[in-house]
Design a protein around this nucleic acid. Structure first.
Length: 269
DNA sequence: CTTGGGACCTGGCTGC
DNA sequence: TGCAGCCAGGTCCCAA
């Protein structure tokens, strides 16, 4: 599932294909993709537009167009962006043809992905919390934000308005690395614990970007290769397997209705 | 106001 | 073998 490292990888690998290129044709095959606009209007508005730049904000992709509008995309659980896919695909939801002859395909098995064409991308991404990997984001920022919430720390880490880009998998990995139980209250962590968590969040995300994302479930990179970050996972999706630190079996519990994997011995409540 | 839980969506897997 | 039900989870929406 695309979280920050996966979306960052998609952005990096898509960049050379689309930036500076013009859209010759846009085809939306699933109206559910557009919560706020109609298919024909959006197809028409996109045609002829040049992609001036492409950026990631949280888990969103933002295509800045020559019309000064922005196409903002969220892949949610199973959305994929593929360049010139060779294999046939029953879940294609949109296709984009570019002036350099390439075809960009949006495929989405569970149909939860969405996109918006907006005057100002802030209308979509404005409510997001800080980027965890930005230089301006400090341990004090994290401490200040966590201190305002009584919710489980796991729920706080995946709340996009508190901090942007972390999803279920990387929240579990960061909490394991920091030896913090997912159900601890966000505002009850010590200064030392928050500092440790800050470094673990950044470490886990940076390593995953270096590995080009985690290919669990449906994630593949735009040119079809798999990511390798899942090979580093120590607790995520490893219920029953041995904790790499102490050997105890990894457990799964629910936090806000999300499966949460942790070591009951290393991460005490 | 905050917090928590369900809905959305589909296909693979598990267990009876 | 068949099939019901669980599981995956990002975000929105509603209720307490």
């Amino acid at each position: 599932m695309p979280e920050l490292p996966e979306v960052e990888t998609i952005k990096n690998e898509l960049l050379p294909w689309v930036v500076g290129r013009s859209l010759t044709e846009a085809t939306i095959l699933d109206a559910k993709l557009l919560p706020d606009s109609c298919v024909e209007e959006l197809e028409h508005e996109l045609t002829g537009q040049m992609i001036e730049s492409l950026e990631r904000r949280g888990k969103y992709l933002v295509f800045h167009l020559s019309s000064d509008k922005s196409l903002v995309m969220h892949l949610r659980m199973t959305g994929r962006l593929l360049v010139n896919p060779k294999e046939s695909d029953a879940h294609v939801r949109a296709t984009f043809c570019f002036s350099n002859g390439i075809q960009l395909v949006l495929s989405d098995l569970r149909r939860l992905g969405v996109m918006w064409l907006v005057e100002d991308a802030q209308a979509v991404v404005g409510k997001l919390g800080p980027e965890p990997l930005s230089e301006s984001f400090t341990p004090d920022d994290l401490a200040q934000r966590l201190s305002q919430h009584r919710i489980p720390i796991k729920a706080a880490l995946i709340d996009q308005s508190i901090i942007a880009g972390i999803g279920n998998m990387y929240a579990d990995e960061a909490l394991f690395a920091a030896r913090i139980h997912p159900l601890r209250k966000a505002d009850a962590l010590s200064v030392v614990e928050v500092q440790e968590l800050y470094h673990c969040v950044r470490g886990v995300l940076s390593s995953a970007i270096a590995r080009k994302g985690a290919s669990v479930d449906t994630y593949v990179r735009p040119e079809g290769q798999l990511g390798r970050a899942q090979l580093d996972f120590r607790v995520a999706h490893r219920r029953g397997q041995s904790c790499p630190v102490c050997g105890a079996p990894i457990e799964r519990t629910l936090v806000r209705n999300r499966g949460s994997y942790f070591c009951p011995n290393c991460q005490l409540l």
